[in-house]
């Protein structure tokens, strides 16, 4: 009987693909998740930056063709040491010359408007682009992280009241901000 059931089980295995598929899912889920996370680790592209890259690419390409924004795919593939950025863009409709020229013109106008932008706008652009290092607007240092930036934008309000602090102090660390608050209290 024992031998019989052994043979039965071995034979039955060949006809039971479902069981293996479930297991395979667990392994390949792990492999795929790992590959994605490693690509992010290796390239320093966080999901947020990837999303930004995606939206910038959409902006750029939709000037020339009408594309399906929802189905645009952005992936990394690695072959040996070479990392390739794979972009798959479903095109809905080709734009005609006039449309393209109009879109380019509109974009160029946007750029020139950005260059003449006032300070409040420049701070907004910096918020979104700060992690890339170099930014379009050079009014303030781009390397600061978000927490510092928040304190930066808060500080000018305080300093206006006091009318004492110099721009250097405005950009100083949070530790000094505490000191400023203390002196303010004393003065009050």
């Amino acid at each position: 009987m024992g031998l019989f059931s052994d043979i039965y089980n071995t034979v039955a295995k060949f006809f039971r693909p479902q069981e293996e598929q479930e297991g395979e899912a667990s392994k390949s889920v792990a492999t795929n998740r790992l590959k994605l996370v490693l690509m992010q680790d290796r390239t320093n592209l966080t999901p947020r930056i990837l999303e930004q890259m995606r939206s910038e690419l959409i902006d750029l390409l939709s000037r020339y063709v009408e594309l399906d924004k929802e189905l645009l795919e952005l992936n990394f593939e690695q072959e040996g040491d070479q990392v390739a950025l794979m972009l798959s863009i479903p095109v809905i409709r080709a734009k005609d010359e006039e449309e393209i020229e109009a879109a380019i013109k509109a974009h160029q106008e946007e750029i020139s408007e950005d260059e003449e932008c006032d300070e409040t706008e420049s701070e907004e652009t910096e918020e979104t682009e700060s992690e890339e290092g170099e930014t379009v607007c050079e009014s303030e240092e781009s390397d600061t992280d978000e927490t510092e930036k928040i304190s930066d934008s808060e500080k000018p309000k305080k300093s206006k009241k006091k009318n004492v602090s110099t721009p250097e102090e405005m950009k100083s660390s949070e530790g000094e901000e505490v000191c400023e608050e203390e002196t303010e209290e004393i003065q009050g």
């Binding site: 293996e20 297991g23 392994k27 390949s28 792990a30 492999t31």
Partner: peptide, 9 residues
């Protein structure tokens, strides 16, 4: 049983 990554993976 394909529940663990293989050496090749």
């Amino acid at each position: 049983s394909n529940e663990m990554m293989s050496v090749d993976d």
